[in-house]
Design a protein around this nucleic acid. Structure first.
Lengths: 259, 259
DNA sequence: CTCGGAAGTTGAACGTGTTCGACACGGCGG
DNA sequence: CCGCCGTGTCGAACACGTTCAACTTCCGAG
């Protein structure tokens, strides 16, 4: 109903049953490449230290920004030695991977509200997108400074990387659900590919959001509200005879380009 | 004619007369903000030293990659002190701005070939896009390593930053020329905005190119060849009565979002 | 010719992320 | 009880980008 936000879930953890992916995303510590990823705690004490360092780091990131937060400061604030942080986290960047996971869980929780009640495709999509922005809003400044890290193709933090795969798939699942749970009639050929395309559009929204300097990122909200009807109309039009070849061309191109 | 490349210009410097922007892009040393930009050489000796440092840096970047190239290494290889490099270039990142400028000049030279002979819009656009990729191809690996730096919103290297403005405008001018020099009939409302949109699409192509791991970036070529007809068709369709409101919506949205 | 000052140049020093060899803890087999 | 060894912890040390106060070069006004 509102033009903007989706309220946060009362309990983010309890909202996971909505998606088919479930808890797989939040708890995948083992990296694809065994190198430089930091050790996994075995003891209870280790678990505690790890959590202490992580919480301290994320708090400082949000308070002072990513670049302004020193690993030494994190260590000092957490009351441990610098080397200890590197025992659990392969690098400063690796601390951010946790941030992704946390963000996804909250996004899922917020999106569940809309997905449970609404049936109109455009409205569902709008809800999921706004929910994503809602989730990230408190970290806007912080996100902008570390965004560059995620952009590097070879970085494990890249949304396209193998290391981000679980989180990415879970995120795509959100858009799949927005589609399948709706009353929208879609070209069957398009139906399978669309969720990934919507996720891609979401990445575009995030890209815009990161650069958005308007107060409270109002423009990003306008982007969402403006682009959703367009997508909705386009998806509807895709079944028209006239546009059939275009649809087919687009799908063909996408299949070719998928890496 | 060819499916791919546009041959390099015999003399990159001589091809500038094609655009309306002319030499403004290559020689705009003064930054919008006076801070941290490095000094401008006044004497001939200074000019020489600056060029020496820049050439050495770009060579090492291409040879070893951006991150692997130390400022100390650049200085040593150029036979000067570290501080000297910082006298001319505000930071390591500022060395890349120069790379942008060089790339633009060569892009312009390559594109001029197609723009001088072809009149079909799609073909002109295709030519400009391929020319851009041709220009960057030798630096593909290097580009991937520094790309993350350019992605950060606050970085002067961001293609959207004020500091990149001259280069960006010159680049947009290329697409404006691709349009105005063609026989394409475009919705007059769209005509003014389209070049910037095409440039945005070009940024998208570059984004894909940076991530493209296929041999010789074949997929990026496929992306261009596939997406150009789509754009061409869309532009043509924009004049249709049925799509008029959509066109208007898109334009309205874009005007709102322009920062 | 002289010499003042702008332009150019130097390299040590600072704060950063990260590494690494050494040390402390704690439970378990003997 | 002892010694062992894997887990956890430490902090000095390294290489990096960057800064800056001091120095050198050299042109042109007097």
């Amino acid at each position: 109903m509102t033009d903007r936000s989706v309220p946060p879930p009362a309990d983010a953890g309890g909202a996971a049953e909505q998606t088919g992916v479930g808890g797989a995303a939040g708890a995948e510590p083992v990296t694809a490449r065994g190198e430089a990823a930091g050790a996994e705690p075995v003891t209870a004490r280790g678990e505690q230290t790890r959590k202490l360092i992580l919480d301290t780091a994320l708090r400082l990131f949000r308070e002072r920004g990513y670049a302004q937060t020193t690993m030494r400061a994190v260590a000092k604030e957490a009351g441990v030695a610098v080397g200890n942080a590197y025992y659990y986290f392969g690098s400063k960047e690796h601390l951010i991977q946790e941030f992704y996971a946390e963000t996804l869980v909250e996004h899922r929780g917020r999106a569940a509200r809309v997905l449970a009640t609404e049936t109109d495709f455009a409205e569902r999509l709008r809800g999921v997108l706004h929910a994503g922005v809602d989730t990230m809003t408190p970290s806007h400044e912080f996100a902008a400074t570390f965004f560059k890290t995620a952009a590097e193709p070879t970085s494990p933090l890249s949304p396209f990387s193998a290391e981000s795969s679980p989180t990415r798939e879970a995120s795509i699942a959100l858009f799949r659900e927005a589609l399948t749970g709706s009353t929208a009639k879609v070209d069957p050929e398009l139906r399978d590919e669309l969720p990934e395309l919507l996720w891609l559009a979401y990445m575009g929204v995030i890209l815009y959001w990161v650069y958005d300097r308007s107060a409270d990122q109002t423009k990003t909200r306008a982007l969402i509200n403006g682009v959703v009807p367009l997508i909705d109309r386009l998806v509807g039009l895709s079944r028209l005879r006239v546009l059939r070849p275009v649809t087919r061309d687009v799908l063909g191109l996408i299949r070719t380009l998928r890496q």
